[in-house]
Design a protein around this nucleic acid. Sequence first.
RNA 1: GUGGGUGUAGCUCAGUUGGCAGAGCACUGGGUUGUGAUCCCAGGUGUCGCGGGUUCAAGUCCCGUCACUCACCCCA
Length: 424
Amino acid sequence: MTAAVPPGGFSAPKGVPEYVGPEFTSVRDTLVREADRAGYAHIELPVFEDTALYARGVGESTDVVSKEMYSFDDRGGRSVTLRPEGTAGVVRSVIEHGLDRGGLPVKLRYTGPFFRYERPQAGRFRQLQQVGVEAIGVDDPALDAEVLAVADAGFRALGLRRYRLEITSLGDATTRPQYRQELTRFLEKLDLDEATRERARINPLRVLDDKRPEVREQLTDAPLMIDHLSDEAAAHHAAVKRHLDDLGVAYVENPWMVRGLDYYTKTTFEFVHDGLGSQSGIGGGGRYDGLMAELGGQDLSGVGFGLGVDRALLACRVEEAGLDTASRVEVFGVPLGDAAKDRLVGIIGALRHAGIRADLAYGGRGLKGAMKAADRSGARFALVLGERDLEAGEIQLKDLTDGSQQAIALDGAAAAVDRALEDS
RNA sequence: GUGGGUGUAGCUCAGUUGGCAGAGCACUGGGUUGUGAUCCCAGGUGUCGCGGGUUCAAGUCCCGUCACUCACCCCA
C-alpha cells in the first residue's frame, strides 16, 4: 500500500515554521557572531539524546519534561528524546569527552532546532530554533555578566531596542529549601484555584510569575527569594550587577521571575520584548551550580543562555529592524537567441568561478521577460548578449540602478565585470 | 491540555434574506524577438480548508474534523 496524498496536499508538521531567503540565517548568524567574539567555540550536538538525560538534567517535575517531550523508542528499544533544550546535551558532552579536564571555563556555543510538544501560537513552535552558549567550570560573577553581555550585544546588533533584560537571583542550595518552605506556607493561606494549588505543590516558585491580576494581587506580600539569599549568593548577585554596569548593559531586577527548568541557581535572567504578544521571551538563561554533578561529572558550576531565533526574527519584523535583504546575485545574464545563450552560460560560469554571484534567464524567455527577471533578481548589472554583439565580439553591460549601458569586449568579460562591481 | 475567534485566487481581502464566484497586488504572454522597476491589452488565477447533513438550490444554514490565530498554561 502506498500512502495517499492527503486532501489539500502535504503540509509541514504542526507548529513547524519554515524560512525562505536570507532573513533567518541572517538573524541566527548575527546572534552567533557575538558569541564567537567572546571566544565561545562551536559544538555540534546530537538532535536526540537518551530520554533519561533530560529527565534527570532538566527535572522530572518541569512541564518541559513531564508533558512536552518528543520521546520514542528506537528500533533497538532505547528511549530517546528530541532535544527540548541545549544545556543538558552540552553538559553531557563536556563530561563524556572530559572537556572539563583542560583549561576552565569551557566556553561553548551551539545553534539548531529544539523540540517541544506544545500548542502552537504566535512565537511558540514545536520546532524552535535557538542560539545558545555555556561557560562551564568557573563560578565567577564576571562570567555571568559576560554571558548576559553577549546576548545583549546580539540583540543590539540585530537593531532591536524595544526589549529589556530582567534579572534576579534564585539563590543556592544553602538557603533555597527554607525559603521554599516559607513560600509554601504563604501560598497555603491564599485563595487559589485547584490548578494553581497543584502548581504550588509541585513548584511553589512557579506561582510567583502568574499573569492573572487577581492572583498577582494576592502575591504582593509574598516572600521573595531575593530577600533570602545566602551571604555568598547575595555577594555574587551584587557583583553581577556591578559588572553589568561596567559593561554598559541595562537591566531591571524582577524578583518574581521564575525559570521553568530546575537546574538554575543564583543568576537567572530573561530578555523580554514587548511587541510579540504573550510569548514575549526572546532569550533566557542563568547559572546552574549542581547540573554537572547531577549528570555524573565533576561538581562544577556553569552559566549560559538560550536565545530564540524565531522570536528574535519576529521582533525584528515588529521593530522594522534591519533584516538582511541582500540580493541573491550581483550579475544577471540576458541572452537573445540560442547562440548567445550558449556563450552566456560559459560567461556566467566564469563569473561564479571568480567568486561573483551570478544567474541568468533560463527557459528561452523573451527579452522583456528576461530583463524583468534580471530586475527581480536584485542584480546590480545585467549582461545582455545578442547576435549583433556576438558578431562585434562585444557584450552589453547594463547598470540596472541607472539604466546606463556600455559595450565591453567578450574576451575577458568576466574580469571587466569584476572591475565594474568593485568600482560601484 | 483548557477556552474564544477565523478559514474564499500565490498574497491582502469583498461576497446582500441561501440564487451564475469577484477586486487589488503578484504571475505569464503581447503592445516593442535589442532592454527591467511606468503605461496599455490579454490570460491560469479557485476541490470557496476537508468530510457529512438540511434544501429545488449552500461560499452563505447545521454537525464533525483539520489548520491558523488570541488568551490561559508554558517557555525561546
